[in-house]
Simulated assay, not measured.
Amino acid sequence: MEPDSPDLLAPVGRGGALIGYARVSTKGQKLDRQIAALEAASCQRIFSDKKSGKNAEREELWNALDYIREGDTLVVPSLDRLGRSIQDLISIVAGLRKRGIGFRSLHESLDTTTPGGRLVFHVFAALAEFIRELIVQGTHEGLAAARARGERLGRPPAMTEEQIRHARSMLADPDASVTSIAKLLGVSRTTIYKYVPELRAGHRPSVGGQHSGLERA
């Protein structure tokens, strides 16, 4: 149950204006049918976007959400016209409910201004959270199993042990620059400094184990 509502099934959005929202995802698609359906549903004002549901900017949707007021109801031709995903859809509808605004989807006959419609959407939200928790749990179990098998997790190192040995050997030559060695090994200067830490202190490896001054500028 939502903390801001004492009754999970309490309807919201009754008695206000019906505000429509339509969207097409490609240039070739037309809004005519969606707008006609929204007009038939008695929407007093209709906002429309001609952008993909994956486009986070959906300007007219945000304009509709800014325009709509408590007691009103947002109407869409179908659920996939509103959200990019089930989580996105639930987030938008939950935000509407907190503002006292209803939601209707014509194709699915879903109406949160009724107790039954509100219950269906609550089930959707619970299912989405359950799936998210399963994914997180599965990820954690997979990582634990990989660690138990001794597998290395995360990104592979930028330099192998063999490359580090080659770098140290070449750096023992005072005429060799860090830049040239980095290019030869196919890594950046920063990587060389990371894997040969004595360079940061101004020293270079030497064959005899002693250190000499850092490369020329």
Rank of each mutant, 00 (worst) to 15 (best):
G150C: 07
T190Q: 13
R149P: 13
S180T: 09
L171C: 03
K183I: 09
L184F: 05
L199N: 10
G202F: 02
Y193V: 08
R189N: 14
A167S: 06
L143H: 00
A167R: 05
V207S: 08
F130I: 07
H122N: 14
S212G: 15
H122E: 12
P156K: 06
I181R: 06
L134T: 15
E151D: 12
G117E: 04
H140D: 00
L110M: 03
T179Q: 12
R152K: 13
A176D: 06
T179D: 11
G138H: 14
V196G: 11
G154V: 06
F130H: 10
L199M: 09
H140A: 06
I135S: 13
A172V: 09
A125D: 11
L153D: 00
Y193T: 03
G202N: 07
S188K: 07
G142M: 03
S188I: 09
V187K: 04
A182K: 06
A144I: 00
P197F: 00
K194G: 06
R147I: 02
T160A: 03
L127I: 12
V196P: 12
G150T: 07
M170G: 07
T191Y: 02
T114Q: 01
G138W: 04
S109P: 07
G116W: 03
F124I: 05
P156D: 07
I164W: 00
E161F: 12
Y193K: 10
G208Y: 01
P157Q: 13
I131Y: 15
A158C: 12
E133K: 15
S212K: 15
G186K: 01
G154I: 05
Q137Y: 06
G154L: 04
L171F: 01
A176M: 08
T139H: 00
T191R: 02
R168Y: 05
A167Q: 08
A128Y: 02
R200G: 11
A148G: 10
P115M: 03
E141Y: 04
R152H: 10
A158K: 15
A126K: 05
G142N: 02
T113S: 13
P115A: 10
G186H: 04
L127F: 08
E151V: 11
H211V: 10
P157Y: 10
F130V: 08
A128I: 08
T114N: 04
A158T: 14
V196L: 12
Q163I: 06
R152W: 09
V207I: 05
H211Q: 13
S188H: 06
I181F: 02
Y193W: 09
I131E: 15
F121R: 10
T179F: 12
G117R: 05
D111M: 08
L143V: 02
Y195T: 11
I131C: 14
R168E: 11
G154A: 07
G202M: 07
L127Y: 05
L185N: 01
T114I: 02
L185Y: 01
R165C: 02
P174K: 03
L185H: 00
L134Y: 14
V120R: 07
Y195Q: 08
G142Q: 03
P156S: 03
S188F: 06
E198M: 11
I135K: 13
V207D: 03
A126Q: 07
P156R: 04
V120C: 02
G138Q: 13
E161G: 13
P157V: 13
G138N: 14
V196N: 11
T191S: 04
A126S: 09
P174M: 02
I192D: 04
G208T: 09
T139Y: 00
H203D: 15
